[in-house]
Amino acid sequence: MKIVITVIGQDQIGIVAKVSRKLADLKVNILDISQTLMQTNFTMILMGEIKTDTPNLAQIQTELKALGTEIGVVIRVQRSEVFDAIQKL
């Protein structure tokens, strides 16, 4: 299952490290990563892959959301197909 993780919020030291460590703990493989600053907002998009047969997406969402709250950013986790469905012919 491929997922898109978006992290949006105030820039600070260690966001990438904290998010990627959490993803490693959750056994999410990072396929691609990009980051940018939009105005003062830190914006990071990660493409991840979960290889287990029965991925627990709800748990991954909950843990990343909690991490987001802890470091003051908003972290969303969504399955990737939705973006292609909406944006591509």
């Binding site: 898109v4 978006t6 949006i8 691609d32 990009s34 940018t36 939009m38 914006t43 998009i45 493409m47 969303r76 939705v82 973006f83 909406i86 944006q87």
Partner: peptide, 11 residues
């Protein structure tokens, strides 16, 4: 990865 499109969808 189409960053602009992902962010637009989220917005």
């Amino acid at each position: 990865m189409e960053e602009k499109q992902i962010l637009e969808t989220i917005q």
